[in-house]
Amino acid sequence: MKVKRWKGMLPTYAPHLFDHKKHRWDEIAQASCQAELVHETIILLSFVPIVFSIWAGAIMVFTITSVLAAAFDMTFVIIQRYNRTRIVGLMER
């Protein structure tokens, strides 16, 4: 997926949590797990508006926007998994 090429183009909400000069690697790995969980929860919640589309009558619009929002957040999950694998490798050395 060539994550290394595009991961720097996406924003980081709290970059200080991932700063290796301020935190130990195990703390950074923990922050990565928490960030991934947050984004996975957001992915699930992005499909909630589809339920409400029944009253609005525009189910296709709600479905398309929900899928796009989930895909966008999935990129953050991919980045967290990519980075955590590298962090764990650093910790093992």
Rank of each mutant, 00 (worst) to 15 (best):
K2F: 10
K2E: 11
K2N: 15
V3R: 01
V3F: 03
V3E: 04
R5N: 15
W6F: 13
K7M: 14
G8L: 00
M9N: 07
L10C: 01
L10H: 00
P11G: 08
D19M: 06
W25V: 13
D26T: 06
D26A: 07
E27V: 10
E27H: 07
I28W: 06
Q30L: 12
A31R: 03
S32Y: 00
Q34V: 15
Q34F: 11
A35C: 12
H39K: 10
E40G: 05
S46R: 01
S46I: 06
F47N: 05
F47A: 10
V48M: 09
V48G: 05
V48H: 01
V51H: 05
V51N: 03
F52V: 03
S53T: 11
I54D: 04
W55G: 02
W55P: 00
A56R: 10
I59D: 02
M60S: 13
M60F: 12
F62Q: 08
F62I: 08
T65S: 14
T65K: 08
T65I: 14
V67F: 06
A71I: 06
D73H: 12
M74A: 13
T75S: 10
V77M: 03
I78D: 04
I79A: 04
R81T: 01
R84L: 03
T85N: 12
T85R: 14
V88S: 01
G89N: 13
L90T: 09
M91K: 04
